[in-house]
Design a protein around this nucleic acid. Structure first.
Lengths: 113, 113
DNA sequence: GACGATATGTCGACTGACTACTTATGCTGG
DNA sequence: CCAGCATAAGTAGTCAGTCGACATATCGTC
């Protein structure tokens, strides 16, 4: 899973949002670092919907225009948490920080560089 | 940076390795989860060399065949650590774990979303 | 001598992200 | 009053990176 996809799912953790709101939320969550282009967002939403990580939760008409809200499915939530675990472990390999609880003896930073 | 690229750099953290050794090291580091295809590895090494994250450190002849060893450059090491930081932060958004080491002495800040 | 491990490398296909563009409304300032 | 910005949803074309398959070569072993 690549970063934009990950952040789209993460943005929906707290509840369903519509497209534009996802863009804003991701920008906020990432400290302004990640700015999803609409092309990235909507193709990602289509893909995530097709694979069952996300689902369309509402289809309202606001000001004469459609507003689609997307939410995480159980599968999406599970996939997101699994991905977060993988990322944390991968990061630990480099940062040398031990796992918070139940640390598996991953070698600390090697002295030899 | 995508996962295979990240692991190639991470494998070189402890010192230079040749191509096949990188594949084995990555498999080991990731608990068998990541198996680099040779196509992925050698194109990644070419790309990383071109962008200055990796450099060819030796060109030995072993058993009549060339063996190329690659090592991290300072730029590569910096990029890798920066990436690990980003990944750790992104993971934290989902896992909800606070920053592990170094956070304790700062004293807990008020809840920042 | 066939096969698996070691070892390096190329090529074409595929996925996902990016840039750029389109359409449309509401609000605000000059 | 209309220019420009924020909001809002999308499409099309392109590009980068990964992957599977293939090619080649040596060494040990069965």
């Amino acid at each position: 899973m690549r970063e934009p996809t990950y952040f789209v799912l993460a943005a929906l953790l707290a509840g369903p949002l519509h497209g534009y709101a996802i863009i804003k939320r991701v920008e906020d969550m990432s400290g302004g670092r990640i700015r999803l282009a609409t092309g990235t967002l909507y193709t990602a939403l289509d893909r995530l919907t097709a694979e069952g990580s996300v689902r369309l939760v509402s289809d309202e008409i606001v000001n004469g225009r459609i507003r689609r809200s997307y939410g995480l499915t159980d599968a999406g939530s599970t996939a997101l948490r699994a991905e977060a675990q993988r990322m944390a472990e991968a990061a630990r390999l480099v940062t040398g920080e031990p796992a918070a609880a139940g640390a598996s003896r991953l070698g600390r930073k090697a002295r030899t560089a």
